[in-house]
Amino acid sequence: MNKAQLSLVNLSCEREERLIFSGLNAQYDAGDVVHIAGPNGVGKTTLMRIVTGLSSHYEGEVRWCGEVARGYEFHSSLLYHGHHAGINPSLTPLENLHWYFGLNGVAAASARSSLDTVFLNALAKVGLTGYGDIPCLHMSAGQQRRVALARLYISEAPLWVLDEPFTAIDKAGVAQLEQRIDDHAKSGGLVLLTTHQASALGNLKTLNMAKFAGGEQ
């Protein structure tokens, strides 16, 4: 397998007869942490949905490791954390993680009991020790977001697309998360993230969406 590499080739997006961005070219390699920046409504989430393949309202190409990023290869390399975290409130954190990694695969996919330990460890890392079997609807908003973020400690996907991962997370949690993102990049991963908080991450690359804003066709 080639090294992780994401190329955005001449991307443009038009919604409701309004050009959101155009002429977006960028290329990122393994080890990059990319901060997608810009004011509200500039198309940050739209860009992320285009990169993941959720949105088809665009022209241009998204390439992963040199190939058009739409196949199984791409999806098995992707971890997406969206505005809606994909955590079902009726299920417990453990059940949510079992479901997610049943669909997305995890190396230790052997016995359910050993997976339980993996998941409980990850939950402990996001500060949810002892919450494994409590339905998520009894948790606070921040805790529910943390359940989704526990995936970052388990997943082996090289490409992380994190839309506002720090929302509703406290200061200590943000610092820990930044550490995890940094580790991931150092071990050959690639991270796209949006945030409105000042980031302490050192090797941050910034993609300023305002530069590609509509109009300049």
């Binding site: 397998m1 199984y72 999806h75 098995s76 390399s77 079902n88 009726s90 299920l91 059940e95 079992h98 479901w99 990694f101 049943g102 669909l103 997305n104 695969g105 995890v106 190396a107 996919a109 997943s155 082996e156 996907a157 090289p158």
Partner: peptide
């Protein structure tokens, strides 16, 4: 690079979720 999860896992994970 992680491989895609086998279909048996998908089947059991999503069935279990729906039943719960």
């Amino acid at each position: 690079m992680s491989d895609i999860a086998p279909q048996s896992h998908v089947l059991s994970a999503s069935l279990r979720r729906e039943f719960v």
